[in-house]
Nucleic acid binder design. Structure first.
Lengths: 127, 127
DNA sequence: CCGCATCCGATTGGATACTG
DNA sequence: CAGTATCCAATCGGATGCGG
């Protein structure tokens, strides 16, 4: 019995030859990085430079403090951003994307492009 | 008070100027298309041509019938694939990506590429 | 100002057993 | 062969209120 015929474009090397969602598959790594509601929006805001907790809240007013904290901690744990507590009173905190975090920029652009393409194609279908 | 300074690369037009996860934002449209565990794997399998329910189960043995059905129905509802029931006994069903579904190929490739990049960058950090 | 603690309803993924 | 029907534990997102 021959094995599956892999598509070289979709699965260029062994890392993607999985039959289940393995944590070390590159696709799962990327999905994990942007997973969770609001995450891509937080990333978008930080792409142009570091922001404080309050500045992020100002830019995303409907995002609760709890969920924002969750997202920031997740991104920090994945080495996508760095948290810096600046001394003074009141306390200020700076969130800054790492090189890893900046590496997500092309993916965000591709998400936008793909979403637009889907919208256009669906329009052509009459929905 | 001036408004936010949008990054033209990340947010090329009004569709992305959102302060919350709106359903019609292109990024959210694309995220919705690939959302849910196993979804990218199902898409990967279908990218090279139509498959039956059983063929999908063979290729993704750890995926339960329920979740597979869920994913297929979701993708169908989003016009990403077409379901065709072929007469005969036993019944055969064919799942085939639409033009919309095929439009996700570049995104899957970008997910893979980005995931690999993250892995390499983290390796350089010693983790 | 920057969070954390708690609670809670809703959604999710998976296991198991059954049907046209 | 191709699903459906239940059930269930775990996770998630959001609201509210408190603390350093």
């Amino acid at each position: 019995m021959t094995d599956v015929d892999w598509d070289d474009e979709l699965v260029p090397d062994d890392g993607g030859r999985t039959r289940a969602p393995e944590l070390d598959c590159p696709v799962e790594v990327a999905l994990a990085a942007i997973s969770g509601r609001w995450t891509t929006l937080v990333l978008r805001e930080l792409m142009s430079g570091p922001l404080s907790f309050g500045e992020l809240r100002d830019r995303l007013p409907a995002l609760s403090a709890k969920v924002l904290t969750d997202r920031l901690r997740e991104l920090e744990a994945r080495d996508l951003l760095e948290r810096r507590t600046l001394r003074g009173f009141p306390v200020r905190t700076s969130y800054d994307l790492t090189a890893c975090g900046q590496a997500l920029r092309p993916l965000l652009i591709e998400l936008y492009r793909t979403g637009n393409t889907l919208a256009v194609l669906r329009q052509d279908l009459g929905r």
